[in-house]
């Protein structure tokens, strides 16, 4: 019990000491649950109100062929990776004013990290995202 408490304190201390802009380690299991918030508009394998997420990492913003993006997103000079996703998910309209993603964002840094960790796995899954 004491050992677990000490470990928790160390983890918390490590998180607190992270620089403001640093990406914290994410838990994809928690991230999958958080993705439920996105499912009014997004899916992994097909376009909906928002574009599909398969192939997200390394893709240029506005880069899903055939999807009708807002002019702001289509012209954004952004490539999606953990850092750019973290910034966007924290404040979508702040990072890309004019985006059609009218969503205030995910304020909690750990929640963003969890979601990004899951997206990294799921968006490259050969089952969910066949070539």
């Amino acid at each position: 019990m004491k050992h677990r408490a000490a470990t928790a304190v160390l983890v918390l201390a490590a998180l607190v000491s992270l620089p403001a802009g640093a990406i914290v380690p994410g838990d994809p299991v928690r991230g999958e649950a958080i993705y439920a918030r996105c499912q009014a508009c997004h899916a992994l394998g097909y376009d909906r109100t928002g574009p599909k997420h398969c192939g997200l990492f390394g893709r240029r913003a506005g880069g899903v062929p055939g999807f009708r993006y807002s002019p702001a997103m289509a012209q954004a000079d952004v490539v999606w990776d953990a850092n750019t996703l973290d910034r966007f998910l924290a404040n979508p309209t702040g990072m890309i004013p004019g985006t059609a993603m009218g969503y205030a964002g995910i304020a909690d840094r750990q929640e963003r990290a969890d979601l990004i960790a899951w997206l990294r796995q799921a968006s490259a899954s050969p089952i969910e995202c066949p070539p």
């Binding site: 439920a36 918030r37 996105c38 499912q39 009014a40 508009c41 309209t93 009218g102 969503y103 205030a104 964002g105």
Partner: peptide, 12 residues
């Protein structure tokens, strides 16, 4: 998802 979408839209 719709609940979250509207929740995220309300403050904007």
């Amino acid at each position: 998802g719709a609940v979250s979408a509207y929740l995220g839209a309300v403050p904007l």
